[in-house]
Structure formats: C-alpha cells, structure tokens
Design a protein around this nucleic acid. Sequence first.
DNA 1: TGCGATTCTCTACCCACATATGAAT
DNA 2: ATATTCATATGTGGGTAGAGAATCG
Length: 417
Amino acid sequence: MGRLCDFCGEQRSIVHCRSDAACLCLSCDRNIHSANALSKRHLRTLLCERCHSQPAITRCIQESTSLCQDCNWSGHVSAPPSDVEHKRQMINLYSGCPSAADFSRIWSFFSVDKSITNPEPDPMNLETPSRCELSHADFCTEDTGMEIVAPEAEQFDGKEPVDSMNPKGKRFLEMIVSVIRSDSPAFMLFWLLLRLVESSFMKACSPKKDPGPTQETPCQNFYISDTELSLDDYEALFDESRDETQQFLDNGGADSFYGMRDMYDNECNVKGVTTKASSSKVETLKQNCTTSNQLSAESLTSCKSDSNDCVPRPAQSTHSISFSGQTTECNTRDLPESGGFSTVIMEEHQYDIQFSSAVRDDAVLRYKEKRKSRKFDKKIRYASRKERADVRKRVKGRFVKAGDPYDYDPLDVIRNQ
DNA sequence: TGCGATTCTCTACCCACATATGAAT
DNA sequence: ATATTCATATGTGGGTAGAGAATCG
C-alpha cells in the first residue's frame, strides 16, 4: 500500500519534499514547486517505498525499491539479506521543475510510460510499481521554465583559484554567502564548500604561475595543503551540534535568524543552526582566507542533518573525507547539464560506502540514546493565555462559559493546597 | 500455538475566550 | 505613511473517548 498525496489526497504520493514536510504526487509536486522562485528551490527526492513516510536515500537494485535511511538500515545493514549483498544506488535530490526526461537522467531506474496518455488513477490501488513510472499525464516531457539552483556554480569550473582578483572566484564566494543567507538547504552549502576546497586543491596541485608583483589579496594564501578532512571526534561533533541546536531553539529558533515565522519543524531548526554555524565559518573564511586548516571539519557539519539521519552523507569529491577514520572515495563531476533543475548529490554512483559495521553500530546506538534523552517539553508561546487557561472553570476538562455550572475550578485546587 | 477477553498506554479532541494577526478603511 | 477598526485565527489545560498494544486464561 502506498500513501496518498498530502496535497490532492487522490493520487499516490511519489516524492517527498523536505521543506514542505510533505509527500506529493508528481502532478502536485510540479504544480506546487513551480509556483515561485522560492518553492522551486525546495529539494525533493523519492518517497521511501517501504515506510511511505520518509525521503528515500538509496535504491536497492535487487528489490527495485527506494528506501529511506531507516528502512535501508533495517533491511540491509542491521539485518542484511541472507542470500547475497544487495547492490544499492544513491538517490539524487532535485529541485526546480524537471521534465520526465530529466527524471530519467538523474534516476536511471525511472522510466516514462508515454503510452499512458490519460490514466485514471485509482485511489484505492496504491500498489507501488516495481519500477517507478511516470505517466505522460503526470509529467509533460517538454521543458518548462525551470529555476537553476546554482547557476553560478555551473559557471565556476572548480579549476580556478579562489582569488579576489578572479571575478569568478569572487562571485563564488559571494554565492556562498548568498546561499547561507537564503533558506537553501544546508547541504547545498556543503557542496559549495567542497567545490571551494576542490578549487584550492587544484591550484595546490597545479604548477603555480609566477604571480609577479601582485597586490595582497585576502584570499591569496588560501591553499589546501592537506585535503584529508578528518572528524576525529565523532561524539564531540554531534554533541556540539545538539548543544547548538538547543541553544538556537532557546534563542527563538529560526524566527530569530530569519526574522520571520518559519514553517519548519525542529529538523529545519537544525538546518538553521548548521547554516548559522557555517555562515560564521565562511564569513571568517572570506575575511581571512589565510590557512587551509580553517576549513575544518566543523564546516562539514553543514551537510544536511536529519533527525533520523545523523550519519554524514558521503560527499562527492576527489578528496578523501574521513569520518571517524572511515574513508570514502568519490569522484568529482560537475553538475549535469540540466534544463532548469539541479541534482544536489551529483551523479548517482554505487552505494559502496565502507562504514564498518562496528563503528556504525556504535554511532547509531549513541544516536538512539541521545534521541531518548531529548526533551520535547511543551513550549508556552503566550503566557497570558496560559494564565487564563489556568484559572478557567471546566466541565470534564472542557472550558465552560463564565457563569455556567462547573465541576472543576483550578482556583479551588490552589486554595485547598 | 492461537484466540478472545481484559487491562494498560497513548493521543487526538473538545470546550471558552483573550489575544494575535491581517485586511480594510 | 500611519492609525484605527473589524473579522478571523490561534492557543491555552484537564478530562475523555477511542485506538492499539500488552497481558492473561
């Protein structure tokens, strides 16, 4: 059984929008996220075909099923299949309004069923197909105006030094700051930072031209001498993240940061924290740009964190990024040419991350312990209303009109104490 | 081991009304 | 641009119904 679209409530939901915390059918996804420039930036992915509630992160080839972090963990890691290890593919996130062809490009397992020109969706039949199929009615194949999330990133080829003398590099830095200040997902920033590291790495590896008598520039000395970014203290990383989160929430959450009433839940507040932390980091980076070490592991915490997913996602880079000694090697590729959407976790690649099960078990165990210890105390937003409710007379717990008979008066309880 | 009855746990909902919010003037 | 008025939405807590889980015979 599947899940109905949160918006229309009629068709089977296919994609998950994290920003809206909603599961949507393809039609509604396209309609909603083509409404304006902001909604176009919402990052979406397939919906987990097992729990039908969480965003899928990986695709099991053998089972032809898209799975979220938890379902992937329970189905492949904690209780691995007995026969043969299942091959899995990373599932890309996307934004904008991709066409069906675009979908097929970013998800090879996606196919477009053009023979179905006017399918009558059966709300009662929510069986998830073994292959994800887009009907022609759901998605037209012609390209419509779509927002490119990081057009500047496309222009920045990653091979030029970040240098204030270089207009592209300067624009790149400005872009980072603009991304930080926007509500773009934090791991978009993570990708940008990786590009920044990469560009510096390229310069460090390439023969240096004689710069000649150049004037001092803020970013002149920004080279990455050691491309291995290590997070030696895994525990400290997440402890710090949580503390910052709590502090951020205590300070008013995202409202205090953006100056607006946010529509996000705590998860997005986490995003706010990481963005904030990264913001200060990059601002420092921009101002000083002195040593490569300033781009510390802390910056990497800006990768998108999830209440259900505290394990850093693999990043695509030629650099070796070590998490608690676990190293993953990925290939850097430029963002694919697209007609207006962008995939954020780059090209799909085989999901062969070499996390050792022991370390993974340990991390998950600690995470679950922390999750237990979390406090979700009710927060009173309006003290005056609480004061009112605290003295209001009731009948079987329900408020009653002033003057009506009542069976419970909080003031009587206070007087009797 | 399976099944029905009972008990336990959890959670959404209800109510009135002061106040926040936004639109209209 | 600012102030005022008006209508609507929101949030507050204790008790309860109902759903689902757990236990027992």
